[in-house]
Amino acid sequence: MKRYNPHLKGFGVGLGLFYVGERQGNLANSFELKGYLRTDAALYYKRNGFKAAINVRNLFDSD
């Protein structure tokens, strides 16, 4: 039997990982940009037609 807290009904979380690999920095290919990993996160609440969300892009401030 699953137990859950009815007060938390409608709450959710999300996580996204986006990887960008090394690439050329300009059309002349005179320099390269390093790859990076960006992490996004979200908290949301949906209930009875009401929707609210908090989204954070680049959670760890990757350059």
Rank of each mutant, 00 (worst) to 15 (best):
S30Q: 12
R3A: 10
Y19Q: 08
K34P: 10
R47L: 12
E22V: 04
L59E: 06
A42R: 15
K2N: 08
A41Y: 04
N26I: 08
G10Q: 01
F11N: 00
S30N: 10
R38A: 11
F50H: 11
G14P: 00
N58A: 09
G35K: 01
G49I: 10
D63R: 13
V13G: 14
G14I: 02
F60Q: 03
L37I: 13
G25C: 03
Y45N: 09
Y36E: 09
Q24R: 01
V56I: 15
T39V: 15
L8T: 11
Y45H: 11
L8I: 04
L15S: 10
G12M: 00
S30W: 00
A41H: 09
I54Q: 01
D63V: 06
L27R: 12
N5R: 07
K2A: 09
Y44E: 02
F50Q: 12
A53N: 10
L33I: 13
I54A: 13
F60A: 04
F11Q: 05
A52G: 12
A28V: 08
A42S: 15
I54R: 03
F50D: 08
F11D: 07
L27M: 07
F31E: 03
R23N: 06
H7V: 06
L59P: 05
L59R: 04
K46Q: 15
A42P: 04
R57W: 05
L15N: 03
R38T: 13
F31G: 00
G16I: 03
L8F: 10
F11A: 10
L8M: 11
V20F: 05
N48Y: 13
Y44V: 01
Y4L: 07
A53F: 08
N26R: 03
H7K: 11
L59D: 03
L43N: 05
T39G: 01
G12L: 00
L33P: 00
N55V: 11
T39M: 14
I54L: 15
S30T: 15
G21N: 12
G21Y: 00
Y19H: 13
K34T: 08
K9Q: 14
H7R: 13
T39I: 15
N5W: 01
V13M: 12
L15Y: 14
K51Y: 12
M1P: 01
E22F: 00
G12Q: 03
N29G: 09
G25D: 02
K51W: 01
S62G: 05
H7G: 05
I54Y: 05
S30R: 02
D63G: 12
Q24L: 07
Y44F: 15
R57C: 02
G16N: 11
G25F: 05
A41F: 14
N5D: 15
T39E: 10
P6K: 07
T39P: 03
E32Y: 14
G35S: 06
N48T: 10
R3N: 07
L27F: 11
Y4M: 06
V56K: 04
L43D: 05
R47T: 10
N48P: 02
K46L: 11
F60G: 00
P6V: 07
L43C: 08
Y19C: 04
K46H: 13
A52E: 06
K34A: 13
A41V: 14
